[in-house]
């Protein structure tokens, strides 16, 4: 699979003599080696791999989480359920954890802001947010989120009142956190769909806030 995409080596300086033929990068070669052996030994099926990639590239993304947050904003009973048992509340909307992880929703309030990190290996709430952005996986974020969360927020353009506490949640293989951002003022009576448009990926990690309704198409 993907032969045509990673095959040609358009500016192959190492292979200038060989421009009529293809070349693969070292990583691509290692991956093909591993994949072909796993397929031969019956550990994985190519179709199943394609299905997993398709799912994560197109069907699972931050919009899932945005719908969870919008429902929590619009429906107090759902919000209570999410606080009590996020795994079940999120599963009720059809988003389930494939790695068997437990979801915990942490709610932002005027007193407390929540920020999520995984210092070990960038664990991330995939079922609701898709795959992590590059910065989430960087050593800089993993270390600085813990030692200087206010500075990290400033880098993201977020300045919180001095009095607001910041809690940092370190994810594990078993527990993933979803931040429930504060509902923006001026959105009374909005539909869940319109509310979901205000929920950014970063607001559900805690490196951002929900969008200002004035700046969003209502």
């Amino acid at each position: 699979m993907h032969a045509s995409e990673d095959g040609p080596h358009p500016h192959g300086h190492d292979h200038g003599h060989d421009h009529e033929h293809s070349a693969l990068s070292g990583n691509a070669l290692r991956v093909r080696a591993l994949e072909s052996i796993l397929v031969e030994k019956g550990y994985v099926a190519p179709d199943a791999l394609d299905a997993i990639i398709e799912t994560y590239e197109t069907r699972i993304g931050p919009r899932n989480g945005a719908r969870v947050v919008a429902r929590a904003w619009a429906d107090p009973a759902f919000r209570e359920w999410l606080r009590r048992d996020a795994t079940a509340a999120i599963a009720s909307l059809g988003y389930g954890g494939r790695q068997g992880e437990h979801m915990v929703a942490v709610e932002n309030t005027p007193e407390e802001h929540n920020l999520v990190v995984c210092t070990l290996c960038s664990c991330y709430p995939w079922p609701v947010l898709g795959l992590p952005p590059a910065w989430y996986k960087s050593a800089a974020y993993r270390s600085r989120a813990v030692i200087d969360p206010r500075g990290v927020l400033a880098d993201f353009g977020v300045t919180l009142p001095e009095a607001r506490r910041i809690r940092v949640w370190d994810s594990t293989a078993e527990i993933r956190y979803l931040v429930l951002p504060m509902r923006p003022a001026g959105t009374e009576g909005w539909s869940e769909e319109a509310l979901a448009e205000l929920v950014t990926r970063d607001s559900m990690i805690g490196t951002g806030l929900a969008r200002d309704p004035a700046g969003a198409p209502a």
Partner: peptide, 19 residues
């Protein structure tokens, strides 16, 4: 931002999930 920058990244991810 795309989930994967190169096809091999997607493949290694999918193999891990499948295994």
């Amino acid at each position: 931002e795309p989930a994967f920058r190169e096809p091999w990244e997607a493949s290694v991810f999918a193999m891990t999930v499948a295994l």
